[in-house]
Design a protein around this nucleic acid. Structure first.
Length: 557
DNA sequence: ATTAAAAGCCAC
DNA sequence: AAACGTGGCTTTTAAT
């Protein structure tokens, strides 16, 4: 049930006691029953090659990812000092997929630690935990996430380069020759110079030059931040803000981006599972997690296909309510029919605060540690209406201020503050400590408290999202039908079935044959309910989604 | 010439 | 209104 891939010195693998030449791995995997949990050092190292060979894996155990969680979890006690598993690098997907000869990467790496021993060690650590069930769920979800991330890279996000190019041309003007400024930016640069009475040599791309020119013109700006410029009353503000906005589009998602990251009608950015301390995913290359709304028009489904786009509404406050056991706040998120409604509207309906906007900034402030402005002002009212949730995040913040570890619902623990932090705290208790030493220590402590306050919520929301993803992935596969080509050949994974193509923290995009879109939408809904049950059992918290079916990502929002 | 930091904006 | 969490990425500018 749990075959382990053990790299051998001769470049082959040992699986279930049998020697398997690398080239035979796909057929060995394909021959096993679907319940097998494939256990390996690094999903990124083995799974891309399997997918390329047309073999999908249902379940996996990623030893590297599991190790990272267990090593620092406060819900487990790890028996050994640091070893090779603590510094095992993740295999970059680009290294595996770009080079067919490297389908599985090099295997004869003597430094690779023993996966069989590591699995036994991890099993023992989990079994010895008082929260073994939660940890098992977390490890399973993390590993399923690793499979999903590789599959999304394999499939890619459908991307029409000509639509992207049209967006750029409409906004910036036609693509200029190398080193030249697009027409629209050029006009704005001239308007900026005119408004400042600056010479033609003024380059708005140089913050130094620009700020100096603005000071000479008496604009009164101290920085070039957008929000600060918006406060000013000067003719340069409007063209400058426009320039900055277009410049951003050009440099971050312009023609160069298009050429670098879009190939064959697909955008591929590598997801880094667990790449954020809280357990959120990071991404590498192309900035998948910051795709600006302006270019999402280019995300267009294949002919005959469409997208199901879903995002979890107010995920973090719902997660907070559930982990804090706050029935009152959970009720505010269930709505009149009990199936889930706008949580901020529910908070208003409860009488705690007068407007939705205040409910929103107040809850965000509670989860981020905000103290100023309208957010700070409504906190006392929220604390009175929802004492359990507010006390929960406050306790996480206090633990952080004391330099302690906090832990998510399933058992991912925060790191400890570094040496500088401790030195600063110690500095406040020196005999010769001045007011500034004490203030700095307090500021550092508060800052770490904001981190731990947010960690428990963001981290548990990431766990919910992992379970959601895993459930969607499994349901889509079960829903799918194997498409056969006219000659009877079966299409490889994901070329004929609905599949995940995008994920950002609390939002997913499924690329699906149009005929299955409604069924996919229903499964995505079911998966959200399942994720809630997996994490919080019978606790009555709702996780409603907003779901849209549209052939373009931009139209789904 | 190369690297690192700083500033700023994008996403959630 | 502008301090209040997690990141990636690009450019300019300073440092080596």
């Amino acid at each position: 049930m749990q075959p382990v891939l053990v790299p051998q010195p001769d470049g082959s693998l040992r699986v279930d006691g049998r020697r398997v030449p690398l080239g035979e791995l796909p057929s060995v995997v394909a021959a096993r029953d679907a319940a097998a949990r494939w256990t390996w050092d690094d999903t990124n190292r083995w799974y891309p090659g399997l997918l390329s060979a047309g073999v999908r894996v249902e379940r996996a155990h990623d030893l590297r990812l599991a190790h990272r969680i267990l090593r620092s979890s406060a819900l487990a006690s790890w028996p050994d000092p640091d070893d090779a598993w603590d510094s095992l690098p993740v295999t970059p997907l680009t290294a595996v997929a770009d080079e067919p000869a490297m389908l599985f990467g090099p295997v004869d790496d003597a430094a690779r630690p023993d996966p069989v021993a590591e699995l036994a060690r991890q099993d023992a650590v989990v079994a010895g935990s008082a929260a073994a069930g939660r940890l098992r769920l977390l490890l399973a979800a993390e590993s399923a996430g690793a499979l999903t991330a590789v599959e999304m890279y394999h499939a890619g996000l459908p991307w029409l380069a000509d639509v992207h190019d049209a967006v750029l041309t409409e906004t910036l003007g036609p693509r200029p020759r190398l080193g030249e400024r697009p027409a629209r930016l050029d006009e704005l640069a001239q308007r900026i110079r005119d408004a400042l009475g600056a010479p033609a040599t003024l380059n708005p791309d140089s913050p130094q030059d620009l700020l100096r020119a603005m000071q000479r013109a008496g604009v009164g700006a101290r920085t070039l931040r957008k929000w600060e410029l918006e406060q000013l009353d000067h003719p340069v503000v409007e063209p400058l803000l426009e320039y900055k906005s277009l410049y951003r589009l050009l440099t971050a998602n312009g023609w160069a981006w298009l050429e670098a990251w879009v190939r064959g009608g697909r955008f591929r950015s590598e997801y880094v599972v667990g790449g954020v301390v809280t357990g959120r995913w990071a991404s590498s290359g192309g900035g998948a997690l910051q795709l600006p709304k302006s270019v999402r028009r280019a995300v267009v489904a294949d002919p005959g296909w469409t997208f199901v786009v879903a995002d979890a509404a107010q995920l973090e406050p719902r997660v907070l309510a559930a982990m804090a056991g706050d029935e009152v706040m959970a009720a505010a998120g269930r709505g009149p029919d009990g199936r889930g409604a706008d949580m901020y509207a529910g908070i208003v309906a409860s009488g705690a605060v007068p407007t939705r906007e205040l409910a929103k900034v107040g809850m965000l402030g509670a989860m981020y540690g905000g103290t100023t402005g309208s957010s700070g002002q409504v906190l006392p009212r929220l604390a009175k209406a929802f004492p359990r949730s507010l006390a929960f995040v406050d306790e996480a913040a206090r633990a952080g201020e004391r330099g302690e570890v906090v832990t998510t619902h399933l058992g991912r623990s925060s790191p400890l503050p570094g040496a500088t932090w401790h030195e600063t705290q110690a500095g406040a208790y020196q005999d010769d400590a001045g007011d500034d030493d004490v203030a700095r220590a307090r500021s550092y402590a508060r800052s770490w408290g904001r981190f731990t306050r947010n960690f428990v919520v963001q981290g548990t929301a990431a766990e919910w999202a992992l379970c959601w993803l895993a459930s969607i992935r499994r349901r889509l596969w079960a829903l799918g039908v194997d498409s056969a080509l006219p000659d009877g050949a079966v299409l490889p994974p994901f070329t004929g079935r609905p599949h995940l193509v995008f994920f950002v923290h609390d939002e997913i995009v499924v690329h699906t044959p149009s005929s299955l879109a409604e069924a996919v939408a229903a499964e995505v809904q079911e998966a959200a309910a399942e994720a809630g049950r997996l994490l919080f059992g019978d606790f009555p918290v709702a996780f409603p989604l907003s779901v849209a079916i549209a052939p373009s990502y931009a139209d789904a929002k």
